[in-house]
């Protein structure tokens, strides 16, 4: 077996490796190079040094998008995880119809972001129309619209991960706690949560990065309106690259900064939550 794995390793790994190189490594390196260039089309670039990076900070929309994204990520991470965990707890209690509920909650995940964005735009605008407002009336509306959308889409997925975690907790641990006279609140705090810490790590990681690099939903729901005030970072980068003549390189530079930022946050978060995981 070991031998055949070795033998077939290149055949199985090569396609993925090639795809990874073409689809990820090459564009990534090209992207970094382009962030130091001035260009109209990507095949025809002129090196200009770091002036693109200096321009970023004269762009008010970028700073705004940065704060807006940070706020959005915090709110959505907290809401999604708390709600997903609560639903997971409910659906592991053995109430009837559990499977139906799990399926229903998971379903929104199967729909693509753009479609979801337009669907929710119609829904929310339909409701807001009663108050003679629309989703793009102000960035606050767009913000909460986006939070609702993301919760609806992601809670089901995180719920599945939490359910798996909760079901893995050995029954005797909870039984022992009960015999020792722990209340259900104490069981939750001292047994369940420490035991599902690996799931929490995964879920916070996923929601955190999803929140930070959100694009489709933002584009479809508000497209940054009004006045780029509901623009998240990814959309801001896209709009800088495609929307402003002569700013293509700046968009590219923003993308590099964006990458570094997401990478740093993800690493810090992994470190923090991994410390709290317990071995069984």
């Amino acid at each position: 077996m070991q031998k055949s794995i070795k033998k077939y390793f290149p055949i199985f790994a090569l396609p993925t490796l090639v795809a990874f190189t073409i689809g990820f490594l090459v564009p990534f390196i090209m992207g970094i190079y382009l962030s130091f260039c001035k260009f109209t089309t990507v095949t025809d670039a002129k090196f200009v040094g770091i002036s693109n990076y200096l321009k970023i900070f004269t762009d008010k929309t970028f700073i705004h998008a940065l704060w807006y994204t940070a706020l959005f990520t915090i709110v959505s991470v907290v809401l999604i995880n708390v709600l997903a965990f609560a639903i997971a707890m409910l659906l592991t209690k053995g109430i009837s119809g559990t499977n139906v509920f799990r399926t229903v909650f998971f379903m929104p995940n199967l729909i693509g972001g753009i479609v979801l964005g337009y669907t929710w735009q119609l829904l929310l605008n339909g409701i807001l129309a009663h108050f003679q407002k629309t989703l793009t009336y102000s960035s606050t509306y767009g913000f909460w619209g986006l939070v609702i959308l993301m919760c609806w889409q992601q809670i089901g997925y995180m719920m599945i991960i939490y359910i798996a975690g909760i079901q893995n907790i050995p029954g005797e641990l909870i039984e022992a706690a009960k015999i020792d006279g722990a209340t259900s609140g104490q069981i939750l705090k001292n047994v369940t949560i420490p035991m599902v810490m690996p799931s929490i790590t995964i879920c916070t990681f996923l929601t955190l990065t999803n929140g930070f690099k959100l694009f489709d939903q933002n584009l479809a729901l508000t497209n940054g309106e009004p006045s780029n005030m509901s623009e998240l970072l990814a959309l801001n980068i896209f709009n800088t690259f495609y929307g402003r003549t002569g700013w293509e390189g700046v968009g590219q530079a923003k993308a590099v900064i964006f990458f570094i930022l997401v990478a740093i946050i993800a690493v810090i978060q992994m470190r923090l939550t991994r410390d709290k995981e317990v071995q069984q």
Binding site: Y137, S138, P226, S227, N228, G243, R244, T245
Partner: peptide
Amino acid sequence: PSEEWKNGVGSALLEYAQGT
């Protein structure tokens, strides 16, 4: 001068119209 100028004017027009 640019698309950006048009967008700026457009956004300001909209906010004026909305009352924001």
